[in-house]
Amino acid sequence: MQEIFEFRIDSDFFHLLPKPNNGRENGIVYVVTLLKDEPNFKEVENLKKVVKEKYDKSFVFGWQIKRKYSKKEIDTATLLQMKIKTMFEPAGEECGTLYDETAACNICGANRKQISPLMLKKGSIPKKDIARTIAGEVVVSEKFAEAFKQRNLKGAELEPVVFAKGTSGYYQLIASSELELTGNTVAGVDPFDFSEGSEGVEFTVSGGYPVKFEKEVYKCPKGHTIGLNLLSEAYVLNSPLINDYDFLASKQKIGVKRGLLRPEPIYFCSQAFRKMVEDEKLSGFEFEIANIE
C-alpha cells in the first residue's frame, strides 16, 4: 500500500516550501503531493508551525490522504472500508427531515435520532449511485437498491427518500449493524495535529461581518466520537457480524457537530459488495482495506 498526502498550501506561503517540489498552482493555493518519507513532508509540518507562530496564519488549508493498493492487496482483504466520493447540499435538516436532538450526545453531538423519512430537495442529488449530504445522510440510486436486493446482500436498510412533492426514486442507505473501532484507528485534526478539541474563535471578515466558531470537542470523553478526521486505515474488533453482513457501520464516529455537520460513522463492506459495485459499474464508490484485530 502506498500512502500519498495531498496538501493545499496557501499561495502566500508556498515559496517557503523547499524546491524541487511538485506544487501545482490552483487559484489561491498550491497543491502538493508527498509521500511520508520525503523530506518535504517533515518540512510541511515544520512550516505549519512557523507560519502559525510568526503570522498567525495557516500554511496548509485543505488536505487528503490517498491510499493506493495492489490488486492482490485489495482482492484478498476480508473487510473493506467503503468511501463515498460525492457530497451535496442542502442537507435533510434543511428540507424538512426531522431529528430528535435530545437523543444525541450532549458533548460531541453524535447519534441524534432521525424520526422522519429523509426529505431532500428535488434536483439536488448528484447523478451518482451513491452520495452523501454535508450532514452525512447517505443516498443511493434505484440501480444500487435493486442490485443489492438481487444479490441477496445483507446489512443495509434502504428507506425511500422523499421530495417535497412525492417519491424520489432514491433510497437512504442505513447500516443495520455496527463494528467497534480499535485503538489503532488514528483520528486527528490533520496528519500533524492530534488535538482532541479546539477553543472557539471570533473574527471579522471583509465587509465587517463577524464570524464565530464555538468551542468544539473532537474526542468525546464518552467514546462516541474519536476525532475530527480519520488519518489511518480503519481497524475494527473481530466480530461474527463481519461474515454475516455485507454492509456495516462503525459504532464510533468521526467528525464534529458544527452547523449542519455531525459526527459520522465509517462504513465497511464485504468483497461481495465491492464485486456488485464493479460488476454493475455503480458510481461514487472508493474502497480501502479495513483491518480486523
Partner: peptide, 29 residues
C-alpha cells in the same frame, strides 16, 4: 480551491479563519 467540496476532511476553526481571511481578502464582501 482551498478546500475541495467532497474531500471530507474537516478543519479546526483556526484554519477556517485563515481560509475565510484569504478568500474574502481576494473577493471582499
Amino acid at each position: 480551491q482551498a478546500w475541495p467540496y467532497s474531500q471530507g476532511a474537516i478543519k479546526d476553526p483556526a484554519v477556517l479563519k485563515s481560509v475565510m481571511d484569504k478568500v474574502y481578502k481576494q473577493f471582499p464582501l
